[in-house]
Amino acid sequence: MGKKNILTISSVLLIVLGLAMIYIGGFYAPKIMLPPIITGIGFFIIAWSLNVLKK
């Protein structure tokens, strides 16, 4: 596996985990919980930085 392939897989996994955390924090909590939502946004930022490194 090359560098680009590993970065692509890890960024896709981070995006999926970020979406899951935002979904759980926004819909399954009694009120809107900010820590999972903020952490999910952090996962998006990390995935974005990995995509920038891929180029």
Rank of each mutant, 00 (worst) to 15 (best):
M1L: 11
M1G: 14
G2T: 14
G2D: 13
G2E: 08
K3C: 11
N5G: 15
I6P: 01
L7F: 03
T8G: 08
T8N: 09
I9A: 15
S10T: 00
S11D: 04
V12W: 05
L13M: 13
L13R: 05
L14K: 05
L14Y: 05
I15E: 03
V16F: 11
L17M: 12
L17W: 13
G18W: 00
G18Q: 04
L19I: 07
L19S: 04
L19N: 05
A20S: 06
A20C: 06
A20G: 03
M21H: 03
M21A: 02
I22F: 01
Y23S: 09
I24D: 14
I24E: 11
I24V: 05
G25S: 09
G25T: 09
G25N: 08
G26S: 03
G26Q: 02
G26Y: 00
F27Q: 03
F27C: 01
Y28T: 07
A29T: 02
A29Y: 02
A29N: 08
A29D: 11
P30V: 00
P30S: 06
K31L: 07
K31Q: 06
K31V: 10
K31N: 01
I32E: 06
M33L: 11
L34T: 00
L34F: 14
L34C: 02
L34H: 04
L34D: 05
P35F: 07
P35R: 06
P35H: 03
P36W: 12
I37G: 14
I37V: 07
I38W: 00
I38P: 02
T39A: 14
T39L: 15
T39H: 11
G42I: 12
G42W: 01
F43L: 07
F43R: 04
F44M: 10
F44D: 02
I45M: 14
I45V: 15
I45D: 13
I46Y: 11
A47W: 03
W48E: 09
W48G: 12
W48K: 15
W48P: 05
W48T: 15
S49F: 15
S49W: 09
S49K: 15
L50A: 10
L50C: 10
L50W: 12
L50G: 08
N51M: 14
N51D: 14
N51E: 14
N51S: 10
N51G: 15
V52Y: 15
V52P: 11
L53D: 03
L53G: 06
L53A: 09
L53M: 12
K55Y: 00
K55H: 04
